[in-house]
């Protein structure tokens, strides 16, 4: 791994941290935050490998005791709580988004990007987060789905669109993801 990739990874870990300082909207126990926007951006700007590592690095920063999560929480406590599953799902989400973005790189636009972010940033996150919530909190599937997913989906759709719009601007002005191999070979 080049030092440049390392710097990009550190940069996106920092971006996710800064997005956590934006004011959160409180709806019940888990707040709607801008941090999943950072997760989507990490995947769709850096690609699968670096996006995954950036989110992982952010979680390491949280785990070593920095209060970087949106609620000002930090340390090891969030990794044991009922919403821990969402945290564990973030690197996977960034990797899935990155992989899909790399596959669609040649025809990436806001619509494709939004779809990619919905698959990786919404479906993957709830596929991991809701079962963990159900197990740790001992809820029924119905309550877990309702309190752990349904309230957040409208906000997540907005974030998926915003992340795609930003990623599209960055793609056209400062692309970080490499071109597909065919194009590289043709040069």
């Amino acid at each position: 791994m080049k030092t440049r990739d390392l710097a990009y990874i550190a940069l996106f870990a920092a971006i996710i941290a800064v997005l956590g300082t934006l004011p959160a909207i409180n709806v019940g126990p888990v707040p709607i935050t801008a941090q999943t926007l950072g997760v989507m951006l990490a995947g769709s700007v850096l690609g699968a490998r670096r996006g995954f590592l950036a989110v992982l690095l952010f979680l390491v920063l949280v785990a070593v005791g920095l209060p970087l999560l949106a609620s000002g929480a930090g340390g090891l406590a969030p990794f044991a709580g009922a919403s821990a599953g969402y945290l564990y799902s973030w690197p996977v989400a960034a990797a899935v988004i990155g992989w899909l973005t790399e596959r669609t790189w040649g025809r990436y636009n806001v619509v494709v990007g939004t779809l990619v972010n919905v698959v990786g940033g919404i479906i993957v996150i709830y596929a991991v987060g809701v079962p963990v919530l159900k197990a740790v909190a001992g809820l029924s599937w119905h309550t877990a789905l309702w309190s752990g997913a349904a309230v957040f989906v409208p906000g997540d759709l907005v974030k998926a669109f915003v992340a795609a719009a930003i990623a599209d601007v960055v793609r056209r002005s400062y692309p970080v993801i490499e071109r597909p191999r065919r194009a590289v070979g043709a040069r």
């Binding site: 390392l6 990874i9 550190a10 940069l11 870990a13 920092a14 941290a17 800064v18 952010f58 920063l61």
Partner: peptide
């Protein structure tokens, strides 16, 4: 990478 990320946070804000 950890050190870099910590330095980037204030730069970003």
């Amino acid at each position: 990478a950890i050190t870099l990320a910590l330095r980037f946070i204030p730069v970003l804000t």
